[in-house]
């Protein structure tokens, strides 16, 4: 087990290095940081001097080597745009994104599984039809539009919820949370729904399909034949089997949620890492872009690992297979 985790971690480091290298070679297509870093009065010589100071005249592989060397020590440099240490910037924005992603993930999972189970158990009910149709609209509308729509309905027309920002926050140690204040929680509602909607639909459809599949299996029929209650059969037996594949997908979706948060964060002016990244791209803030991409890669790698371990915990068959394989 330990060996397995270690091996996976070693692979992860490799993945991260590749991500860093690829992003580094892509940055030059994003634009020239010097163009935004200096006012329009700057002369050619000024620009050249800054370029030299930033090390942009070095070959890409040298820049990368320099970045990698420092990154290992946790030093991601200073943001060109905000002139603050990148690591600190990202860490200060991460709680906002994680809270949003986490709540969205919960919304997506709870409602996704709930609706999925409901529509699987009541295949022909009118409510199922309503849910299925609405969910189709949910996936086909772009996140941006959903966000704006929600803002117009709930912030402008009804004036129930804030249209932007995080509301009041409280610092718990170095973690800035919006979960502890009423305005912080109110501010979370619309962005979390916007961000979670797509994943919710995805999970719902997956759960429904899996559940229908599971409900057809012999062990479910046998469970019914033994007189187990519907509750025990549907939730104890069918749902648990449904969740095995669903966990993998949902877990991986959490990574996507964090990555997709970019759009939602922009629409709602949510001060997370996604908004930070978008602004950095527009400014060609290379240190922030590089660190963000590394962070996303890390998130995916870690989530993958956790999902594998979870899978392992949920499905006893895997345990034996591995055990056997080791002998």
């Amino acid at each position: 087990m330990i060996a397995y985790i270690l091996r996976r971690l070693a692979q992860s480091v490799l993945v991260m290095l590749v991500v860093a290298l690829v992003s580094f070679s892509l940055f030059r297509f994003v634009g020239d940081p010097v163009a935004t870093l200096m006012g329009q009065e700057a002369t050619v010589a000024d620009r050249e001097a800054l370029r030299e100071r930033l090390g942009l005249n070095e070959p890409v592989y040298m820049q990368f080597a320099d970045f990698a060397m420092r990154a290992v020590q946790g030093d991601f440099g200073i943001s060109y745009r905000l002139q603050q240490p990148v690591a600190e910037l990202i860490l200060s924005r991460l709680p906002a994104t994680l809270e949003l992603a986490f709540i969205s993930g919960i919304i997506a999972f709870v409602f996704g599984v709930g609706f999925g189970v409901y529509t699987a158990l009541n295949r022909t009910g009118w409510l199922s039809n309503v849910i299925m149709t609405t969910s189709l609209i949910g996936v086909s509308l772009p996140t941006f539009l959903i966000g704006i729509l929600l803002i117009w309905v709930f912030a402008v027309e009804l004036q129930w919820l804030p249209s932007f920002g995080r509301g009041e926050t409280v610092d718990v140690g170095s973690w800035r949370t919006g979960l502890l204040t009423p305005s912080g929680r109110a501010s979370l509602v619309l962005p979390a729904i916007t961000l979670g909607l797509y994943q919710m639909t995805l999970i719902m459809r997956l759960v429904r399909a899996e559940m229908l599949e599971v409900l057809r299996t012999d062990y479910i029929k046998f469970a019914r034949a033994r007189g187990l209650t519907n509750r025990a059969v549907n939730f104890g037996h069918a749902l648990k089997n449904t969740l095995v594949p669903v966990i993998t997908i949902t877990g991986l979706q959490l990574g996507s949620i964090i990555a997709f948060a970019i759009i939602t964060e922009t629409v709602f002016q949510w001060p997370g890492v996604g908004a930070l990244f978008i602004n950095s791209v527009q400014f060609v803030d290379v240190p922030v872009m590089a660190a963000y991409l590394m962070m996303i890669a890390l998130v995916f790698v870690v989530i993958n690992l956790i999902v594998d371990l979870l899978y392992y915990a949920v499905d006893p068959r895997l345990r034996v297979d591995r055990a056997v394989a080791r002998h």
């Binding site: 704006i148 803002i151 117009w152 912030a155 402008v156 004036q159 804030p162 249209s163 932007f164 922009t266 629409v267 709602f268 002016q269 908004a275 978008i278 602004n279």
Partner: peptide, 14 residues
Amino acid sequence: KEAATRVAALLSGE
């Protein structure tokens, strides 16, 4: 940052 949100914030009185 987002134009539509900015206008919405004004209309909603925020």
